[in-house]
Amino acid sequence: MTVFHFFNCAILTFGPHAVYYSATPLSEYDTLGTSVKAAVVYLATALVKLICLATFLKVSESDSFDPYQEFLKALIGFIDVAGLYFALTQLTHRNISQNHKFQAVGLGWAFADSVLHRLAPLWVGARGLEFTWDYILQGLEANANLVLSISLAALGSLMWLRKNKPKTLIPIIYLCAVIVATMPSTTSYLRRGLGWHLPKVVGFELFTSLVMAFISWQLFAACQRPSLMLAAIH
């Protein structure tokens, strides 16, 4: 019965990644290699991040929200963006379109994140006899994270790979990228600064991720068809 629960939570946590891969054209163009490479880059980035965190951050005795520490954490969080930049621009991929590239990178990124951060707690906790909602919420969080990762990758590809994008959209793209990149700090603030409970935080994450995904999608579409977008603006 408890293994059953673990199975359920694992489906919720890792299922969407697989579904995304098989439902979108990613599977048709066989972009698994790209995703795996992105995952490896994620692992390296996570290692660098850990070293930075261990070097620059004090161990907080209390669970309170310390703005200075959180600012440092947010700065260190931008290492993620650097890693994503590396994954998007420096990795040599087989000939895949930009369209698929950012999706594959975002997917690999999010999957590696889920495996690294959620698999072990899930295995330890969800198999126990005690029932809590935590692991289901954690699975939902993984979903939000997938959407956010792909959005960030999309924005990144717009920033770094697309040369001829409408000038008016550039500030919006950068703004969105900053918002998405600082999401971990935002949720940390909500949880500890404002004392929100996990269900509320996860709900917020899901909502924001969907909004950001929609905006990113619109931006991406606008950049692909600049004339149409401009027409729409006028």
Binding site: H5, N8, G15, G128, L129, F131, I136
Partner: peptide, 24 residues
């Protein structure tokens, strides 16, 4: 231990399955 029932887990599996299908 506060435990969830098998019925709950079955229901959850159903919900998750349909979620994935809808997502797909």
């Amino acid at each position: 231990y506060q435990v969830a029932s098998v019925t709950f887990d079955l229901l959850l599996l159903l919900v998750l399955g349909s979620y994935l299908i809808v997502l797909f």
